[in-house]
Computed example of a mutant assay.
Amino acid sequence: MSNTVHALTLPQDANLSGFLKVANSAPVLSAEHEAQLARQYRDNDDVDAARELVLSQLRHVIHVAKGFTGYGLPVSDLIQEGNIGLMKAVKNFDPERGIRLVSYAVHWIKAEIYEYVLKNWKIVKVATTKSQRKLFFNLRKARKSLSAMTEQETQDLASNLDVPVKTVREMELRMTSSDVAFDGRDSDDDEFSTSPSAYLPDMRYNPEEVVSKTQTSTNNKSALHKAIAGLDDRSKDILQRRWLSEDKATLHELAAEYGVSAERIRQIEKRAMEKMKGQLVA
Score class of each variant (00 low, 15 high):
135 L>R: 07
135 L>D: 02
135 L>P: 03
136 F>H: 08
136 F>I: 08
136 F>A: 11
136 F>G: 02
136 F>M: 13
139 L>E: 11
139 L>T: 13
139 L>N: 09
140 R>D: 08
141 K>L: 10
142 A>F: 08
143 R>Q: 15
143 R>G: 04
143 R>L: 02
143 R>V: 01
144 K>W: 02
146 L>A: 05
147 S>N: 13
150 T>R: 09
153 E>A: 11
153 E>T: 10
153 E>F: 04
153 E>I: 11
154 T>V: 06
155 Q>H: 07
155 Q>L: 15
156 D>S: 11
158 A>F: 05
158 A>S: 07
158 A>H: 04
161 L>Q: 01
162 D>L: 06
163 V>D: 02
164 P>I: 09
164 P>V: 06
165 V>A: 12
165 V>Y: 06
169 R>S: 01
170 E>A: 14
171 M>G: 08
171 M>R: 12
172 E>M: 06
173 L>R: 11
174 R>E: 04
176 T>C: 01
177 S>M: 10
177 S>H: 11
177 S>D: 05
177 S>A: 13
177 S>L: 09
177 S>Q: 09
177 S>G: 03
178 S>D: 11
178 S>Y: 12
178 S>Q: 14
178 S>A: 15
180 V>Y: 10
180 V>E: 12
182 F>G: 01
182 F>R: 07
182 F>N: 01
183 D>P: 02
183 D>Q: 06
184 G>Q: 14
186 D>Q: 08
186 D>F: 08
187 S>Q: 05
187 S>P: 00
188 D>A: 12
189 D>W: 09
191 E>S: 10
192 F>T: 15
197 S>W: 07
198 A>E: 03
199 Y>V: 02
202 D>S: 12
202 D>P: 03
202 D>I: 05
203 M>I: 15
204 R>D: 06
205 Y>V: 12
205 Y>E: 13
208 E>I: 13
209 E>L: 13
210 V>K: 08
210 V>Y: 00
211 V>I: 09
211 V>H: 04
212 S>A: 15
214 T>R: 11
215 Q>W: 11
215 Q>D: 09
216 T>I: 06
216 T>V: 05
217 S>W: 07
219 N>V: 14
221 K>G: 00
222 S>T: 14
222 S>E: 13
223 A>P: 00
223 A>E: 10
224 L>F: 15
225 H>G: 00
225 H>T: 06
225 H>K: 12
226 K>S: 09
226 K>L: 14
227 A>N: 00
227 A>C: 00
227 A>I: 01
233 D>C: 01
233 D>M: 07
234 R>W: 02
236 K>I: 04
236 K>Y: 01
238 I>Y: 01
239 L>M: 08
239 L>F: 02
241 R>S: 12
242 R>T: 00
242 R>I: 06
245 S>F: 06
245 S>V: 00
245 S>M: 12
247 D>G: 04
247 D>R: 10
248 K>L: 04
248 K>G: 01
249 A>P: 00
250 T>F: 03
250 T>S: 15
250 T>N: 02
251 L>F: 15
251 L>R: 14
253 E>L: 05
254 L>D: 01
255 A>W: 08
255 A>V: 05
